[in-house]
């Protein structure tokens, strides 16, 4: 069972939403035509994906692509026009508002791009906010909040006001607030976008570390492909409200679904992304072309899942190609040519 299941979700802003959906389905209308004909704006177009337990799922897209709208469906801050969302197997569209509020407070934590801390409350009271809403007493609130503060390495800042902290620290508080109630799911809406590159990097690393310990199921929104690749176990790329491709970073870089994605990934360094298996020439075709490999024992070897970085390392200082071995068998071969084409992302001749 997936932790988050999003199935066929549409969000149309406007009065004639249903007609608009029908028109898009049947006639394949685009965004401008829908706006013209129905005065409606497509926010999310037929989005479906699942997030497994402990997985970090990145939703990546440019601003206006609908990723922030989509993530707000997961805790029903926005009602879908049609489609279902199941959290831990339960359809949240069918929940009463009381149950839904309990779900938001206990099962889902959310981090916002602009922190959205309450300026009139101390850091500790901000972190304990969700607990307070559920009626937890002040003593336990403070304990849990201090624990959360320690988790994000802000020990001792509990009595400060948010305005006394730097941007990076404020976002740590935001993260601590999301973690305080120990939810199963984290929704991160461009959490690090507003920060300086250096601090962003720090926080990314820290979050990755945290994530490995806590194993929170995370939906991570970003407009930065590098960030998506760094953070995401899997990535969903959105364009004009539509999820155009879902896959691992490697899938997306090596096999972009369309020109839009291809454009996106064109400038990405493939060294750490692409594995040997993606570029190697199968040993059978190599043999068919050039005959059997002699002196195989002299060749450097690598595993199919090793990345290009490793292959480059092995290839330097020798003229010999690299053999790719799996379970003791040679499955493929990477020559200098193949390697260079692989780095470039072009097909070997």
């Amino acid at each position: 069972m997936s932790v988050v299941e999003v199935d066929g979700v549409w969000k149309i802003f406007g009065d004639k939403a249903d007609e608009a959906i029908a028109a898009v389905r049947n006639e394949g209308l685009g965004k401008p035509e829908v706006l013209d004909r129905f005065g409606a704006i497509i926010g999310v177009k037929d989005a479906s994906f699942t997030v497994e337990e402990g997985e970090i799922f990145c939703l990546m897209g440019l601003s206006g692509s609908g990723k922030s709208t989509l993530v707000r469906h997961i805790n029903r801050l926005i009602e879908p026009t049609t489609g279902t969302i199941r959290i831990l197997g339960e359809d949240i569209g069918a929940m009463t508002s009381e149950v839904l509020r309990a779900l938001r407070a206990e099962k889902i934590g959310m981090v916002f791009q602009n922190m959205a801390l309450l300026p009139h409350r101390s850091v500790r009271d901000n972190i304990g906010f969700a607990l307070e809403l559920r009626g937890k007493d002040a003593y336990h609130r403070a304990q849990l909040a201090d624990h959360a503060l320690e988790t994000v390495s802000l020990h001792g800042y509990g009595d400060r006001l948010p305005s006394e902290l730097s941007g990076g620290m404020q976002q740590r508080v935001g993260l601590a607030r999301a973690l305080a109630a120990d939810p199963e799911i984290l929704l991160m809406d461009e959490p690090f976008s507003a920060l300086d590159p250096l601090i962003r990097r720090n926080l990314q690393d820290e979050f990755l570390g945290l994530s490995q310990n806590l194993r929170k199921t995370t939906v991570f929104i970003t407009h930065d492909l590098d960030e998506a690749i760094r953070m995401g176990d899997r990535i969903g790329i959105m364009n004009d409200g539509e999820i155009v491709q879902i896959g691992t970073a490697e899938d997306i870089v090596t096999a972009p679904a369309d020109d839009y994605v291809a454009d996106f990934v064109a400038g990405i360094s493939r060294l750490k992304l692409v594995s040997a298996s993606k570029i190697m020439v199968k040993v059978e075709s190599h043999v068919a072309r050039y005959g059997p490999i002699d002196d195989a024992h002299e060749y450097p070897t690598a595993r199919p899942e090793d990345d290009l970085d490793t292959l480059v390392e092995l290839s330097t200082g020798t003229e010999l190609p690299v053999l790719i071995r799996h379970d003791g068998n040679t499955v493929g071969i990477v020559t200098k040519d193949t390697l260079l084409h692989g780095l470039q992302g072009t097909e070997a001749q």
Partner: peptide, 19 residues
Amino acid sequence: STKEAALAFGASERQLLTK
């Protein structure tokens, strides 16, 4: 955004107003 955050953490309309 602040109101949205409060809702996301499970605030009811009344809690949103008073807190």
